[in-house]
Simulated assay, not measured.
Amino acid sequence: MSDAANKAIDRAMGALVGGAIGDALGMPTQLLSPARITELYGHVDDFVAPVADHPVSKGLLAGTVTDDTEQALLLGRILVESGDHFDHARWVNGLLDWEREVKARGSYDLLGPSTKRAIDAINNGLPAEEAGRSGDTNGAAMRIAPVGIMMPLEPLDALVAKVAETCRATHNTSIAIASAAAVAAAVSHGIAGGGWRAASDSAVAAARLGATLGHWVTGGDIAARIVWAQDMVRGKVMKDAIRLITDLVGTGVASQESVPAAFAVLEVAGGDPWQAAVISANLGGDTDTIGAIAAGMAGACTGFSRLPPQHVARLVGIDMSEVRALAADLMAARVAKKGSGKDAAA
């Protein structure tokens, strides 16, 4: 394998494992307010176990990944198995099997509201292309990194079309597609060897294109909110940035809150995956998802080899050999696409 191919796979691993780090660090703080996080844990800068009465994370070990990572890896496998045309039936059945497995092991962190609503509709006979017409939360964006690994950044319309294809069954709305397209484009830019700031620019372009697809729903423009959120926190110290993100951008499951928040985190962290995870974990709200998105984008731009090994070693619930195999398969699919050999080696 060439040096360029090894570097590309390293960045693909960086996206997947970086996302897992952000997810696991935010696991014990998700759904909590910033004040409650401080009261229970102080400033979170390492993996900690959730409190015994946590609403969704109770009983998990420190460093455990959640639905964000598990669904991203599931989507990656479905992408590889689907070939050129995304297999919606396999994807929906995979999500159902995943939820059954999660319930069997006693977890409380199940499918998000948009995904759950769509799957219930599909089970009741609604076609997959119609089931996702009201899905506007961040479930698509949180698991979209494998699309960014597999799809070259150019042509951009092809990348965004693949994002929209994977969103159709659960998040077939303009705001969810725009959000997922932004994250996928940032990851794809990183896989090709680009830095985090230019990746943010690519994300804005992809969000604008994604907003023209799917069923239109109300909500702030994702591209504009990404630019605004990053501008607002630029040059701020972490404490002030956390307050601005929490108070003004928002950290809820709505796409127009959590996705711009993740890009703001990327700005404050200066593209450092671990710092992105730490900032996200202390925000309050949907900390695990914001962390997974922000640290995953940062990881794509830095690579797995630059992730802190002492923290990677403490992740729970993720098989590194499986992740490496998936990263290699997604990169093989990327290289197989027209013009992607040059892109992957950039």
Score class of each variant (00 low, 15 high):
residue 14 G to M: 05
residue 15 A to S: 15
residue 15 A to F: 13
residue 15 A to G: 13
residue 17 V to W: 12
residue 18 G to P: 07
residue 18 G to V: 13
residue 19 G to R: 10
residue 19 G to E: 04
residue 19 G to H: 12
residue 21 I to D: 05
residue 21 I to S: 03
residue 21 I to P: 04
residue 22 G to T: 07
residue 22 G to L: 10
residue 23 D to F: 12
residue 24 A to K: 09
residue 24 A to M: 07
residue 24 A to S: 14
residue 26 G to M: 08
residue 27 M to T: 15
residue 27 M to N: 12
residue 27 M to A: 14
residue 27 M to F: 14
residue 27 M to S: 08
residue 28 P to Q: 04
residue 28 P to S: 09
residue 29 T to L: 13
residue 29 T to S: 15
residue 30 Q to Y: 02
residue 31 L to M: 15
residue 31 L to A: 05
residue 31 L to D: 02
residue 33 S to M: 11
residue 33 S to K: 15
residue 33 S to N: 04
residue 33 S to E: 15
residue 33 S to Q: 13
residue 34 P to H: 11
residue 35 A to H: 14
residue 35 A to I: 07
residue 35 A to L: 14
residue 36 R to Y: 09
residue 36 R to C: 01
residue 37 I to V: 12
residue 37 I to S: 02
residue 38 T to N: 10
residue 38 T to I: 03
residue 38 T to Y: 05
residue 39 E to L: 07
residue 39 E to Y: 07
residue 39 E to F: 04
residue 40 L to F: 03
residue 40 L to G: 00
residue 41 Y to L: 03
residue 41 Y to R: 01
residue 42 G to S: 05
residue 42 G to K: 04
residue 43 H to F: 15
residue 43 H to C: 00
residue 43 H to N: 06
residue 43 H to M: 04
residue 44 V to W: 03
residue 45 D to G: 04
residue 45 D to Q: 14
residue 46 D to P: 00
residue 46 D to Q: 15
residue 46 D to F: 00
residue 46 D to S: 14
residue 47 F to L: 03
residue 47 F to K: 08
residue 48 V to Q: 06
residue 49 A to N: 02
residue 49 A to V: 04
residue 49 A to F: 06
residue 50 P to A: 06
residue 50 P to H: 10
residue 50 P to W: 04
residue 50 P to F: 04
residue 51 V to S: 01
residue 51 V to Q: 01
residue 51 V to C: 00
residue 51 V to N: 00
residue 52 A to K: 06
residue 52 A to L: 12
residue 52 A to Q: 09
residue 53 D to M: 05
residue 54 H to K: 06
residue 54 H to P: 02
residue 54 H to A: 00
residue 54 H to G: 01
residue 55 P to A: 03
residue 55 P to R: 06
residue 56 V to E: 09
residue 56 V to S: 05
residue 56 V to C: 00
residue 57 S to G: 01
residue 57 S to R: 02
residue 57 S to W: 01
residue 58 K to P: 00
residue 59 G to V: 03
residue 60 L to R: 15
residue 60 L to K: 14
residue 60 L to P: 00
residue 60 L to W: 15
residue 63 G to L: 10
residue 64 T to Y: 04
residue 65 V to G: 08
residue 66 T to I: 09
residue 66 T to G: 12
residue 66 T to R: 05
residue 66 T to V: 08
residue 67 D to V: 14
residue 67 D to M: 13
residue 68 D to T: 13
residue 68 D to I: 13
residue 68 D to E: 14
residue 69 T to A: 06
residue 69 T to L: 11
